[in-house]
Design a protein around this nucleic acid. Structure first.
Ligand SMILES: [Mn+2]
Ligand SMILES: [Mn+2]
Ligand SMILES: [Zn+2]
Ligand SMILES: [Zn+2]
Lengths: 142, 142
DNA sequence: CTTCATATTGCAACTCAGTCTCAATTTGAG
DNA sequence: CTCAAATTGAGACTGAGTTGCAATATGAAG
């Protein structure tokens, strides 16, 4: 069970339950993006007894604690990814095959800070999604 | 009725119906973001007989023709905005009051092009959302 | 270790945006 | 004008996400 989430639970006066621990652990073992249904199935398949309701109820806590973030909406359901223990990045998404390229640009980050400053806006987080076609889907070899 | 959408309809071998014309016209009169339910209500209130189904069925056509784009997902429903006859821009959204600041930065656009080039990704469109707190919500005067 | 107020759980019923089916109507090419 | 093909409205349906509730688990206090 992640220490930071544990602290969050205690500070908020919530309880550390097996269900929450199982959910957090399952996400720790996840690389890449996931959706709640998938996470729920994964838990069940691993023998857990957590309910779908608990999974959905835990997600807002995980977001509030800064453990995960919502990253995309595909097929009208939300997708998340762990942000604790990973570096911040943005996404290029291939609209043909769904492939996700993660990238990070300090210049891009700084530029955003400047823009927010100019608008007198206090940036908390951001979300950049570049949609297009990946090299493979364009049938280019190199 | 917007000329470009009209052309799109013809080229696709679709039909120009009163319903589609009414929907397009209603969006032309819209400034800012809107959601399908709102649009539907607005049409009805103006005396139109269009059905909710037609509104939802027309939206994908409007997107495909480049007339509107999906801009945000709030309260788990989609929001759109007209992009024909407006300049491309991105958004800063206040998580406290919901205010939307629209901004445009050529530098930001170019930087994205460079990053895509580096990843060998063909950018088609993008979507940058900066979440944070606006000046008013921070209780600052100036 | 026991007690007990409070938080949490599973389940199933529910909500609501969005989709689909189908019979009736409209469109526009010929 | 005719007629195949497209579109429409109504309402049933879907599926992600939420919620009420009774049963259960947690953990602070004693
Ligand atoms: Mn990612
Ligand atoms: Mn806008
Ligand atoms: Zn691809
Ligand atoms: Zn605000």
């Amino acid at each position: 069970m992640d220490k930071r989430f544990q602290e969050f639970i205690v500070e908020k006066g919530l309880k550390s339950t097996r269900e929450r621990r199982e959910i957090v652990d399952a996400i720790m073992e996840t690389t890449g993006h996931f959706d709640p249904e998938e996470l729920y199935r994964r838990l069940r398949d691993a023998g857990s007894k957590v309910s779908r309701a608990s999974v959905y109820r835990t997600i807002p806590l995980l977001i509030e604690s800064g453990f995960i973030e919502e990253v995309e909406r595909v097929d009208k359901h939300a997708h998340y990814e762990r942000v604790i223990g990973t570096q911040h990045h943005d996404h290029m998404i291939c609209t043909q095959c769904g492939k996700v390229i993660e990238f990070y640009s300090p210049t891009l980050e700084m530029l955003q800070d400047e823009l927010c400053c100019k608008e007198n806006f206090r940036k908390v987080r951001h979300h950049l999604e570049i949609l297009g076609i990946c090299a493979e889907c364009r049938g280019e070899h190199a």
